[in-house]
Each structure stands twice: as C-alpha cells, then as structure tokens.
Design a protein around this nucleic acid. Structure first.
Lengths: 110, 110
DNA sequence: CGTGTAAGGAATTCTGACACG
DNA sequence: CGTGTAAGGAATTCTGACACG
C-alpha cells in the first residue's frame, strides 16, 4: 500500500461523459490534458477511460490555471513539485546518501 | 437541502458496467433490482443509468440478502422501515394529526 | 499551443421478449 | 421469482487527422 488508499475518492469509475458534466470541460480538452500527462485515467479492457473524483478535482484545478493563461508544461511542473514534496523522494535520496557516506567513512576509518 | 448531501458518496456518476465490476452482479440483476424498487439510479438525457457509490453499497447489501434466500419484496420492506426511521415521516404524520385534532377541537369548542 | 470538428469503427447500454423453474 | 440470453437499435467513446492560430 502506498500513500494512496482505495477510498471512493481515488476509485476510477466514471466515463469521460460524466467528467465533462462535472467539470464543464470538453472531451477534447480532457483527453488533451491526459496527453500532456496532467491526469492519468485508467483504461478498461477494451480501451475506455475511467476517471476518479480526484481526477475531477485535478481537472478543475487545471481548468483554473488554463484560464490564468498557464501552459500545460508549467502545470505539469507544479504537479511534479507537489509529488516530490509528498512522496518522500527527497527523504529517500537523503537516506541513500547517508548510507553511502557511512560506507565511505567505514572504509576510511578502517 | 434534504438529509442527503451532495458528497461523492451520493453523486450518480457510474455507468452500469462499472457497477457490475464493483459488485460482481450482472446487468440483468442490477436492472431487475431497480424494477423491484430496491435502487434508484439517475438517467442521462438519453436514458442511460448512472449510479453512485452508495448505490453500489446498497447492491452489495442486497446481494448478501439474496444469497440468504430473502425475496426482493422483503428486502423492499426493510428498506422502507429504515426510511421511516430516518426520514421523520412518523413525526410529520403525528404533527399533521395534531393539527387536525386542533382544528377539530376548535370547531367543537366554539 | 490548445481546441474544435467530421469520420468511421468499436464498445456500451437500452428495451421487450422468450425461456426455465 | 430471479436471471440468462439473443435481437436490434441507440448512445458513448476511441483514434488519427485536418484546421486555426
């Protein structure tokens, strides 16, 4: 289990049509934001997209930023920053560096 | 606003296919339980059913009861009982009766 | 870059009915 | 009673492309 639980918020259950209604976005826009790696719907066996409520929330965020004239590439960067903060990647990297230092010092002191 | 808020739990967003996967029931079964007034999906403009997570929960309850050999008519009764308890219908009816009595007594005493 | 659209096909869902029991 | 199924149609979704800017 990662930081994502399997609550209703993250279950991928809605077809794109529902997401259009909930967000006010067109299918074209929603698919394009996926192409730009801003959202990650699941796919059914035969290729149909399924979205979660958290996807819908993300899309409303994205829609606001697009209105402010922000480009998809920049929105992408913000998403990556948030991931970095919450996923503990920095911590992991520091731990690894710590171990490497320990190894180094060991060799050094013996 | 009634006792039902518009949280994700009650938003009607899933097509029947998703509900089949989540519950393990067939489309036939799900439509039949609707016919028997055990669940109440929304309809899109053109007639497609949309279900909420709470509908899914209800269906899993229903599935368990069906396995126990309980008939849809009895499940329906249980649902009505629960509604009666939580909706305050009895209180409302008592209030109306009270008012009628008041009216009656008024005419009686004047 | 971001989005609209027409095109053609594939997958989904719908209803009413027959079947079994 | 509860559920499976074949039937035919309607609605949804998908992809790749052309267009505009």
């Amino acid at each position: 289990m990662t930081s994502q639980d399997d609550s209703y918020l993250h279950k991928k259950v809605m077809p794109i049509g529902t997401v259009c209604e909930l967000t006010g976005l067109s299918e074209r826009q929603i698919r394009y934001y996926e192409e730009r790696k801003l959202i990650f719907p699941k796919r059914t066996n035969k290729g149909n997209r399924k979205y979660s409520f958290s996807d819908v929330e993300s899309l409303m965020d994205i829609a606001n930023k697009m209105e402010d004239g922000i480009q998809t590439s920049e929105i992408r960067k913000e998403i990556n920053k948030r991931k970095e903060k919450t996923s503990g990647d920095k911590i992991k990297q520091n731990m690894i560096r710590g171990q490497l230092n320990a190894q180094f010092n060991k060799g050094h002191y013996n």
